[in-house]
Amino acid sequence: MSLGALFSGCRRIENIDKQKPVIALSIPGAFPRNCDTLYFGEPFDFIALFTDNVELGSLRAYSIDIHHNFDHHSHSTEQLSACSFDAAKQAKNAFLMIQDFSLASGLKEIRVQESVFIPSGNALGLFDEGDYHFFVSLTDKEGWSAKKGLSIKMMHRPKKP
């Protein structure tokens, strides 16, 4: 133990960032929230609050990943109470989106509002409806990373009669 005392005496004063950034998906107006529904063929606004004690990352500092959860492999990191899931099923033409976004440099806090368009289908036809994951990853300048995952539903908007 005395060994530690001996060495800690010559330990350099540290001035390094030791905190992760924070993704707040529960601020007023935040979207989507756990169990929300996104609709194919429409844009939606991703709204969240990002903060960091020193400085958020800038170039490609956050990413959004939407992938199917038909097999219920869920990484729900937001809420303990699960949403109601549809029955597990095989993917036929599951929607997949992975996109990264940049922030202005030098920020400590920002309420992001990013419009994201979701196509209704591809060459194979319409995308599968059902349970999806909405996964957000955010870094700060130092490389600390925060992750939040939501369970969402993705549906085709019923056509008006």
Partner: peptide, 16 residues
């Protein structure tokens, strides 16, 4: 192996 502030775009995986 240094974790950077960047997410991967080129290969479309969205990982740090």
């Amino acid at each position: 192996l240094n974790p950077t502030a960047e997410h991967d775009r080129q290969y479309g995986n969205g990982n740090q």
